[in-house]
């Protein structure tokens, strides 16, 4: 290999390494801002903003969904298997919203610790299987 080519390889490697390190530091610095939502534990510990809107993610607690008979209002509890937060929402829920489902809600914490959501998104998991297989897995549990 000619010296000129060696030099070019060296410069390219240097450039890619430099850009990677710079990006790594930048992402590390903005780590918190890149989180799409706060977990339930973070929110209970007070890491989430108290006065601003933020997103809260967690699993809907089984048996906690209570729908208001005359309106779209619904209240339920979210958990990350460590802490629990009550959520109040008045609006249309996505089809995937169910008990035991992971969801992300956007809104504010009220002074009494209830999270008042103005948007609820459903998070689907990375498992893909036919219903029969899902049923048989439930039986095994």
């Amino acid at each position: 290999m000619t010296p000129a080519r060696k030099k070019r390889i060296f410069l390219i490697v240097l450039m890619v390494a430099g850009v990677s390190i710079a990006t790594g530091f930048a992402l590390k610095a903005f780590n918190e801002n890149l989180m799409f939502f706060f977990s339930v534990t973070d929110t209970v510990k007070g890491k989430a903003p108290a006065t601003k809107d933020f997103r809260l993610g967690g699993m809907v607690v089984n048996g906690s969904v209570k729908r208001d008979a005359g309106s779209l209002a619904v209240s339920f509890q979210l958990t990350d298997n460590a802490e629990v937060i009550s959520v109040y929402y008045d609006g249309i829920l996505p089809d995937l919203f169910r008990e035991g489902q992971g969801i992300i809600s956007k809104g504010k914490l009220r002074s009494d610790g209830v999270f008042v959501a103005d948007e609820v998104l459903a998070k689907h998991d990375e498992n893909y299987m036919p219903p029969e297989v899902a049923d048989s897995m439930k039986v095994k549990k």
Binding site: N31, F36, F37, F38, G57, L121, D125, E126, N127, Y128
Partner: peptide, 9 residues
């Protein structure tokens, strides 16, 4: 990071 997009399948 926490994302709405699912994790790797």
């Amino acid at each position: 990071w926490n994302t709405l997009h699912q994790g790797p399948t």
